[in-house]
Amino acid sequence: MRFACLATALTVWILSLGAATAFEIEGERHYPAPEGAVTLRIISTADINVFEPIILEFQRQNPGVGIDYVIASSTELMRAIYEEQEPFDLAISSAMDLQTKLANDGFALAYSSFATEALPDWAKWRNQIFAFTQEPAVLVISEADFAGMEPPKTREELISLLRENPDRFAGRIGTYDVRISGAGYLFATQDSRNSDSYWRLTEVMGRLHARLYGGSGDMIRDVASGRLALAYNVVGSYAMSRLPDYPGIRIILFEDYVNVMLRTVLVPVNAPHPSEAGLMVDSLATLDSRPALTERTSLPPVKASGLQENSAARPIRLGPGLLVFLDRLKKQSFLQNWTSSMEQFVR
């Protein structure tokens, strides 16, 4: 049994050497250690500017650990860990479903410490996945387009607004292209689970020629520039961090429900330095206790009290439920439905 495992791991390692660059990365940065030889390899979906303060703070406390920070999309991250078994020490992603699948299918190491024990139950799964941020999906609107108008408070109000003002919003709605964005797919599937109005909203948006995006950053930029009147299901933390740059935008938290995405970290099963990786997990899990750092990263940390602050907030639950929308047939049919709703007139 043990030999079989070892043999598998060895084979995987050799394969990964051969296909080291099969997954695509969007960027990479080195943070060499002032002393010592251990280098943590982190694969992450988070932008470098968001994560850098955390890395620097970590290195201040652990001067012997160098960090190699690789940025990739959630699907590429999945490919790197799941299919290519690339030896990363940490995988950080906002795609909770994919992180869950990694853990469920045996690609994550279990880790436990005082810091992880202190996390609320909904912020961890199997002691393998640990959430460190809670990021709501929000509506971003351009204040100019909503001048003299009450912004919608629920999805039903948004549907009515769009239906009643097709001229004003046609071609000026932005949302994720769930076929290419992991976060978009996650928000969409959770929307479809939470509310009947989602498919009507999708149809309305499709009828009004919604623009489809791969990331929140672009949507916010386009709302600010006036190309879009509103963007639906934008990652709240991005929007918040851009508020000072784009004074014309406004963030709306729906009152019917707000999906809260958890950014999670896991230690892959073939991590070369699991104990140093554990230190990083601890550092992330205790983000809430370091306000100076969260200020710099603009990442909203997981709070035990996070659920009470907003009664509409619904943190997406970690667990096997997330595997459902990763089911081949389920995903296929969901995307089919979504595409037919969104592109009814394009076709």
Binding site: A103, N104, D105, G106, W125, R126, R193, R317, G319, P320, G321, L323, V324, F325, D327, L329, K330, S333
Partner: peptide, 22 residues
């Protein structure tokens, strides 16, 4: 033959423990 995997089919298994599901 096709399948619309019900959300509850797997989520119910996650409700009592944090076990892996296949």
């Amino acid at each position: 033959i096709s399948l619309e995997l019900p959300y509850s089919a797997l989520s119910m298994l996650g409700s009592i423990s944090q076990d892996r599901v296949f």
